[in-house]
């Protein structure tokens, strides 16, 4: 372990992830490790439900530090991401001073725009975290925010500092561990990418997905887990508008366990298909006969070795 208790090697990071039940490829582990060591933000892209957000969560709990999350959305601005003045309190304060005639009103401005009236939003909180352990700052689904906000992030991510006109520049004591995720519904700006380490999380292989199911839902019957994995893997090769991610697989698995199924069959698949396919067109295409074909193909022995 190095300073702040960060893992000292890729292997020890992988152990940390294993302890947190997160199954990571060596490549992903390397990226995370380098991001930690170099103090650079980590940009994770990938389809929905492949475990991008989870990386930040397991890092926070594995490193035993605070997770500060900023969920991005269209219209997200500095006032919701960085700081805001508590204007209702400011107005109240003015009233109070007025009723109390003795109060000195000469330095009203400096009083009203001070730390007392500052509401700290996630980005500012991440910078102001007390020294010692750096928090994990998760900037989730950055592709949802406007490009203007991306531009704002550049200053933060390169210098780990924020300027508030009334208070001055606030620099991080210990720079946070920054994890940025994107679903790639639009291309992020090159200037932002340049500041980050980049990793694309793809759909998992059979072995990886099987292992994830076994780790996350240990009560699942062995045979069922294998059948489900095979079927989902097969399903991803079909022509679909929205291919299901690992989170859907886990949901489905949990549902099958709740239904007390020991084995997968076509009837069950058709009944529970809504848990893995969330597009009406996809459901129509895969339901019924096609599900049977896919199921049979997926369980063929030749497919077992990937």
């Amino acid at each position: 372990m190095t300073e702040y208790g960060l893992p000292s090697s890729i292997d020890s990071l992988q152990e940390l992830l294993d302890r947190e039940l997160y199954v990571a490829d060596r490549g992903l582990a390397t990226s995370i490790y380098l991001a930690l060591r170099l103090g650079r933000p980590l940009l994770l892209e990938g389809e929905a439900g492949v475990g991008k957000t989870e990386v930040a969560k397991v890092l926070a709990s594995g490193l035993n530090t605070e997770l500060i999350r900023l969920q991005c959305y269209e219209g997200l601005d500095v006032n919701h991401a960085v700081y805001e003045w508590n204007y209702t309190r400011q107005l109240l304060d003015i009233r109070l001073r007025e009723s109390d005639n003795s109060a000195d009103r000469s330095n009203l401005t400096t009083d009203l725009f001070s730390q007392d009236f500052l509401i700290k939003r996630p980005l500012l909180r991440a910078l102001e975290a007390p020294g010692g352990r750096p928090p994990v700052l998760l900037i989730d689904e950055l592709d949802r925010a406007d490009e203007e906000f991306e531009g704002y992030l550049l200053e933060l991510l390169s210098d780990y500092q924020i300027t508030i006109p009334e208070l001055g520049t606030i620099s991080a004591v210990t720079p946070p561990i920054v994890v940025i995720t994107s679903n790639r519904t639009r291309e992020l700006h090159d200037a932002l990418k340049r500041r980050c380490l980049y990793w694309w999380i793809g759909y998992p292989s059979f072995e990886k997905e099987h292992r994830i199911i076994r780790e996350k839902i240990p009560e699942a019957p062995t045979r069922l887990a294998e059948q489900v994995t095979r079927f989902v893997q097969k399903l991803r090769t079909a022509e679909l508008y929205k291919v299901s991610g690992i989170s859907e697989t886990l949901d489905w698995m949990a549902a099958l366990v709740a239904l007390d199924r020991q084995e997968l069959d076509v009837e069950t698949i058709n009944e529970t298909l809504g848990l893995i396919l969330k597009t009406q067109e996809d459901l129509a295409a895969i339901g019924g006969q096609q599900a049977q074909t896919l199921f049979e193909q997926s369980q063929m022995p030749s497919e077992s070795v990937q």
Binding site: N79, W85, T109
Partner: peptide
């Protein structure tokens, strides 16, 4: 119409900027 706000003539009062000019 985006979700982003800008200052300008509109129906909504910009509470954030109310305090300072009224001091």
């Amino acid at each position: 119409l985006t979700r982003r706000w800008q200052t300008g003539r509109g129906t909504a009062i910009d509470l954030r900027r109310v305090v300072r000019p009224n001091l």
